[in-house]
Amino acid sequence: MAKQFFQAWLPSPEKVNNMKIMKIFGQRTLSSQLWYVNRKSISKAIFIGTFWGILPIPLHSLLIILTVLVFEANLPVALLMAWIMNPFTIVPILFFAFWIGSKVYHVHMINTDMLLGVFHQIVHWIENFGQGHIDFILAKILATGLVCEALFFAFLFFIGMRLYWRWSTIKKWRKRHSI
Rank of each mutant, 00 (worst) to 15 (best):
E149V: 06
I170T: 09
K103Y: 07
H106S: 07
E72Q: 15
S178E: 11
A139S: 10
P76T: 05
Y164I: 15
N38P: 07
L59G: 07
M22L: 12
S41F: 01
A154D: 01
F98E: 04
I159V: 15
V68D: 00
K103R: 13
F51I: 05
I122V: 14
R166M: 09
W99F: 12
R176G: 00
R166Q: 11
F158K: 11
I64M: 14
W125G: 01
D113G: 11
W173Y: 15
N74F: 07
L151N: 07
W99N: 00
L151A: 08
A2N: 15
I100P: 04
V37E: 09
G145D: 06
W173M: 13
H108G: 06
I64H: 03
N128M: 07
E127T: 02
A143T: 15
Q4M: 10
E127A: 12
I65C: 08
K171T: 13
P58A: 10
K20Q: 08
A150K: 03
I100W: 00
A143L: 12
G117A: 03
A73C: 06
Q27K: 15
V107N: 05
N17Y: 11
W35P: 03
H108R: 10
I110C: 00
A139Q: 01
I42Y: 10
H60E: 00
I48P: 01
K171C: 08
I126K: 06
P87D: 04
I122M: 10
V16E: 09
L63Q: 03
F51C: 05
V37C: 09
W35M: 03
F25I: 05
F96E: 02
V37W: 04
S31V: 05
I126C: 00
C148Q: 08
K15H: 14
M161N: 14
Q4W: 13
P92V: 03
N38M: 11
Y36V: 03
V123P: 00
A139M: 11
F153N: 11
A78C: 04
F25W: 15
L55Q: 03
K171L: 13
V107F: 08
P92A: 02
M1H: 10
I48R: 02
H108S: 13
F95S: 10
F158E: 04
K140H: 06
I21S: 07
F129P: 00
R28C: 02
M19E: 13
F88K: 03
D113Y: 05
N86P: 05
M81N: 12
E14G: 10
F88C: 09
L75E: 04
P76A: 03
W173Q: 15
V77P: 09
M19N: 11
L55I: 15
D113M: 06
M19F: 11
I122L: 12
I64S: 07
A2F: 11
I57L: 15
L66A: 14
R162I: 14
F157H: 14
I65R: 09
I122H: 01
M19I: 09
H106I: 03
R176A: 09
I100L: 12
T169V: 12
I46R: 06
I65F: 10
L59R: 02
T89F: 14
A143D: 06
L80E: 03
V37I: 10
A73Q: 06
H124P: 00
